[in-house]
Nucleic acid binder design. Structure first.
Lengths: 232, 232
DNA sequence: GCTAACGCTTGACAATTATCAAGCGACAGT
DNA sequence: ACTGTCGCTTGATAATTGTCAAGCGTTAGC
């Protein structure tokens, strides 16, 4: 791993408070590996041996049941994923695959547990990280149970608009097929949901989206920080 | 608070590892209060000042958006709820109301934060607790996104059957209206879902439910530990 | 350059789920 | 006992969402 990558990871809120020595010890036995796109990194049900960190690229977390599949979330650099499984020493609940060519750091679970015992501040950082993950999933569940597909799409677009500061011009960071799964609908229904938003000033050209009047879209979307704010 | 109640709480995995002294210090400034049924304890959006522990009774965690309401989960004795909000020092994402007459212990958030700083083992217990909460919500989300209403009901009944060891005789612990909201459907649809399960040997008389042949129901429900196992 | 695969869209249709309305029975308060 | 409320169920109907099929354009591989 190059020093710049090490330092990127070190800057994560999880590791920021550690001494350099403790962090380097945490990394002993780790792997830093580059994967091509669309490679399965983790299969749900497998034992959780490593904490994964996306350093570059992107990772999709998804799950299967019978012949259905659904995307639960997407991990972008620089962030960890499947933290909870290794804490519980339990099987992964989700599978993971790369979206693009990606660099992944894998830290042995045992190191994480040892670091918690050695370093109280690290434990506290873990508590903060897990609490944030928990709240993120709760928000996703509220989004699913309280809103329709069109409403979820409208709020997703507003969030993208806020993130990208594009003042009404938004670029989808993922394929529509994936977005559909993330929003809990079929690709066909996502197409129709976009069509439904046309009267609210939403025009689509491939991944490029214009939101003519965000205020207009907001009257439909009714965003609330208790669902849509990614922080807090 | 009576000593027996104190000890019940002390036996929670969160607190089990603490010394008695540290635990009593954690409880300074706490309230132990009895509430009637259907009282709102927490309103979503409010700041998180206390960790709540259900010592007796039951608490519904729910959320509203526009004119919709949905039950997210149910907290039964003895367990904590809304741990994550106070860690992040962020507003509650869910409201809480008592289901029955309930005894609730409220521990000031500040005490929890102080205990984490003082006691590394407590931090580690918090990590474990939050990881368990996270996995529970992920399972709930998979349940929602991958299964239909009837499938969710079938799996719920099988879980109840396993919990109650009743060998095919199950008693619903909550009102059907609430169960419907928990399973993400309307009360009308829950009624129809029960009717759909009739050919699979499920007969309903008020809260009493017979499952003539659990194996038959399982072929429909297709339960998996990665969604339906409450532990792990 | 050709072909095959894939993402996306649209249409037609089916399944699922929600809404509205009515009725029944249990229960609480007067 | 009467009355109103509430939980639950059922029917009719509408809205939402999913499935199947076809077509189009892009892209990747031969």
């Amino acid at each position: 791993m190059r020093p710049e990558n090490r330092n990127q990871v070190k800057e994560l809120s999880l590791f920021r408070g550690m001494t350099d020595g403790a962090f380097d010890q945490l990394l002993t036995g780790s792997f830093f590996q580059r994967f091509p796109a669309h490679v399965v990194l983790i299969r749900e049900g497998d034992p959780a041996d490593f904490l994964h960190v996306v350093v570059d690229g992107g990772v999709e977390l998804f799950s299967n049941w019978r012949d259905h599949e659904s995307t639960i979330s997407i991990a972008r650099p620089v962030s960890t994923f499947i933290l909870a499984a290794l804490i519980r020493d339990a099987p992964y609940l989700m599978s993971a695959r790369t979206l693009d060519a990606s660099s992944i750091l894998m830290i042995p679970s045992e190191n994480i547990r040892a670091a918690m015992v050695d370093d109280g501040a690290f434990s506290i950082a873990m508590v903060g990280e897990l609490a944030a993950c928990f709240r993120q999933v709760v928000k996703a569940q509220k989004n699913l149970k309280l809103r329709s597909g069109v409403e979820r799409l409208a709020n997703y677009l507003l969030r993208l608009d806020a993130e990208q500061q594009g003042a009404g011009h938004v670029v989808l960071p993922i394929e529509k097929k994936l977005l559909a799964s993330l929003l809990g609908m079929t690709p066909e229904n996502l197409s129709r949901a976009f069509a439904t938003l046309k009267p609210y000033g939403v025009t689509v050209a491939n991944a490029e989206i214009e939101i003519a009047n965000p205020g207009d879209l907001k009257t439909l979307a009714k965003p609330t920080p208790l669902i849509d704010d990614p922080d807090s």
